[in-house]
């Protein structure tokens, strides 16, 4: 089960996710990201501080959303991934594509 909270902070759209992102619910995170992009909110911060577990299903949603937002000339930046989520990003090479920040303030301030 995951919780998703969407808010507007300064120039960014902040999407905070918490819980276990797996094949059962990763689409909920993807739908939240896509909904914001569709509304023209293309400066997105995805805060993963509350995500203790993410499988490849979550990775797939992030890649899809990142491609969509890049096509719209925006960006999706990640804040506060746990060590395990960061390891998933590193193994897949996504850490070289995503901008990843240690804090939410830094991520929001990057826009």
């Amino acid at each position: 089960m995951i919780d998703i909270n969407v808010s507007s902070v300064d120039n960014a759209t902040l999407i905070e996710v918490s819980g276990r992102v797996d094949s059962m619910n990763a689409n909920e995170m993807g739908e939240a990201l896509f909904a914001e992009i569709d509304q023209g909110n293309i400066h997105i911060v995805l805060d993963l501080a509350g995500v203790e577990y993410m499988s490849s299903a979550g990775l797939r949603e992030i890649v899809s959303a990142l491609k969509k937002v890049k096509r719209a000339s925006g960006d999706l930046r990640v804040a506060q991934p746990s060590d395990r989520v960061l390891e998933i990003f590193e193994m897949s090479g996504l850490d070289t594509i995503l901008q990843i920040y240690a804090t939410q303030v830094e991520a929001v301030g990057s826009y």
């Binding site: 490849s56 890649v63 890049k70 998933i88 193994m91 897949s92 090479g93 070289t96």
Partner: peptide, 23 residues
């Protein structure tokens, strides 16, 4: 195996699950 060095727009999104299992 999917390619970790693939550019974003060439990524299909799938195939990572078995890759992680191998790792």
């Amino acid at each position: 195996d999917p390619d970790p060095s693939a550019p974003l727009m060439e990524r299909e999104g799938g195939g990572w699950g078995v890759f992680f299992v191998k790792k």
